[in-house]
């Protein structure tokens, strides 16, 4: 599904802001997620100082998708990606280039440039982007074979802000794996993304900061499975007119 790697689970989980590493590992296990993202910028310096935390994550046997969260420039993102490749021995990189800390909105110009630099260097880039079609096109042109548009700003729990835009993206890139990344709050948001035909969903805050992260991880996993199944089952398109499920013509008139 992603750069030639087939996965069973369509849920990717972030590893930040859980109450404890124990809750984090329980949540990952409950969700069945096979890919987790980890942030390199803050949690580990070049001296590999976050080793204890990493060894907990490695012990889970899941695939690690390092990210460049907290990077504001192409240079920072590229440096962080190289550090990640060395630390985790993976060509995968979730590329985030943020314009400012208030909105955490992707800086799409820097994103495209960093994606090009990294793709040329053999990285397999998962860009965190907006649902903008032109940007998506540029990212694919730069070598990305996965796109990760936001549902809403990071951590906002708002769900899918622009369903039309996400639908259009799906329609324009039928062959590229699409992952809704960021902004989801409840499992129905994830189900909605899957019903649009998205390939997967990436979550962090919605699970990590829930009252019971383990139960919420499971709830999201179920919703994602339901949403995918619904998509594959070809749902009805909404229509303006009522469509009775039983014929009315010739129905016996009762109560006269």
């Amino acid at each position: 599904m992603f750069y030639g790697v087939d996965l069973c689970s369509r849920l990717l989980l972030g590893t930040a802001r859980y109450p404890s590493p124990r809750v984090l590992t329980d949540a990952i296990q409950a969700s069945g997620a096979e890919v987790v993202t980890v942030s390199l910028r803050r949690e580990a310096g070049p001296e590999r100082s976050g080793q204890s935390f990493w060894s907990i994550i490695r012990s889970l046997g899941v695939k690690v998708l390092p990210n460049t969260a907290g990077c504001h420039s192409v240079k920072e993102a590229v440096t962080t990606a190289h550090m990640a490749r060395e630390m985790f021995d993976t060509p995968w990189i979730k590329l985030e280039v943020i314009r400012d800390d208030e909105t955490l909105q992707p800086d799409v110009f820097g994103l495209v440039e960093a994606a090009r630099v990294l793709s040329e260097d053999g990285f397999e880039v998962f860009p965190y982007t907006t649902e903008d079609l032109a940007v998506a096109d540029r990212l694919v042109e730069a070598g990305c074979r996965v796109l990760m548009p936001w549902g809403a700003p990071i951590g906002s729990a708002r769900g899918l802000n622009n369903v039309y835009g996400l639908k259009a993206l799906r329609a324009h890139f039928p062959e590229i794996p699409l992952v809704v990344d960021a902004g989801l709050g409840v499992p129905s948001h994830a189900a909605a993304a899957m019903e649009l035909g998205y390939d997967a969903v990436l979550l962090n805050t919605a699970v990590a900061e829930a009252g019971d992260p383990v139960a919420m991880a499971k709830a999201f996993a179920m919703a994602i499975e339901a949403g995918r199944m619904a998509f594959e089952a070809k749902p009805l398109e909404p229509r303006d007119m009522a469509a009775p499920s039983t014929p009315v013509l010739g129905k016996a008139a009762l109560g006269d």
């Binding site: 590493p21 803050r42 949690e43 580990a44 310096g45 001296e47 100082s49 976050g50 080793q51 204890s52 935390f53």
Partner: peptide
């Protein structure tokens, strides 16, 4: 609270 063991 940062998951890091850097002492700097």
């Amino acid at each position: 609270a940062i998951e890091s063991e850097a002492k700097g």
